[in-house]
Design a binder for these strands. Structure first.
Lengths: 139, 139
DNA sequence: TTAAAAATGCAACAGTGTTGCAATACAGGT
DNA sequence: ACCTGTATTGCAACACTGTTGCATTTTTAA
């Protein structure tokens, strides 16, 4: 189960030409096993037994983002949440945040078809969309 | 000019039943005079001569938000930006953030097609949409 | 096996925002 | 105009998330 994720993680890291270190494997394997996007602090607490340095975690997460293996999501609580780039989440997508329990999930689609008009001279790059509401447990 | 904003500010505060204090008048008048959404730090620097306590500024901003006189916008730099609720900005709207100079402007329209479907059992509350790109000066 | 390069661990720092509490300013009644 | 209760302010100290510098360790490739 979890060893499957470790194997996948190792392949993903190796295929990006990075050094395959223990921290990277463990962190990416964890993110692959998580259904929702989770915070730095939540990742830390998952490793409460095994020691995992705060700073190393920040640096590994940044490396994984830079190499497109995970993505990070901003939120109105001003904490980054991280999620592995699997399957449907490769491309740009919207996110949902529960206003009660703060859970963040990735939505599969991004309704960006409808172009909203920018002021003259502005150049479009990306769009960030977060839907807020109550999740199935809090509704 | 700026005294006009002070008069408007005072009326807005009074109409919400709050105490009309000097800090509230000065801060709201400044926000009324600003075209774009600005950060706590930017507001502070506008008052560099007159003294203005950091904590008071945070608390006044929160009060103004709670009373619907201004709104605040989150961003991927994890700093709140504040903008007065005038005219078009009363209702829900999208925002634009320049990825080069970090300028944030309010867009007038929100593409309201909530075609994006939430998972079963989820309840919709609000939508937050930020378009990122280059502004007219940075493009 | 060895050496260069990259990654880690630690300590200290930086920025944004919050809390507790005493001092002050505002508003309403006299 | 003057009290008086109460909201607001100012200050100090704190909390949290994230970053930087640097010595030590691990990884990789010859």
């Amino acid at each position: 189960m979890l060893s499957n994720f470790r194997v996948t993680a190792e392949e993903m890291i190796r295929s990006h030409g990075g050094r395959v270190t223990d921290s990277r494997k463990r962190i990416l394997a964890l993110l692959l096993s998580e259904k929702n996007a989770i915070t730095h602090r939540e990742i830390e607490s998952r490793f409460s037994n095994d020691q995992l340095d705060r700073v190393t975690l920040y640096r590994v997460l940044q490396w994984l983002v830079d190499n497109g293996l995970i993505h990070k999501i901003t939120s109105d609580d001003h904490v980054w949440r991280y999620h592995a780039n699997q399957d449907a989440y490769r491309h740009q997508h919207a996110h949902f945040k529960c206003t009660k329990c703060a859970k963040v999930v990735c939505l599969e689609d991004m309704p960006s078809d409808r172009k909203l008009s920018l002021p003259a001279g502005y150049r479009f790059q990306t769009i960030e969309l977060t839907v807020k509401g109550l999740c199935e447990h809090c509704a």
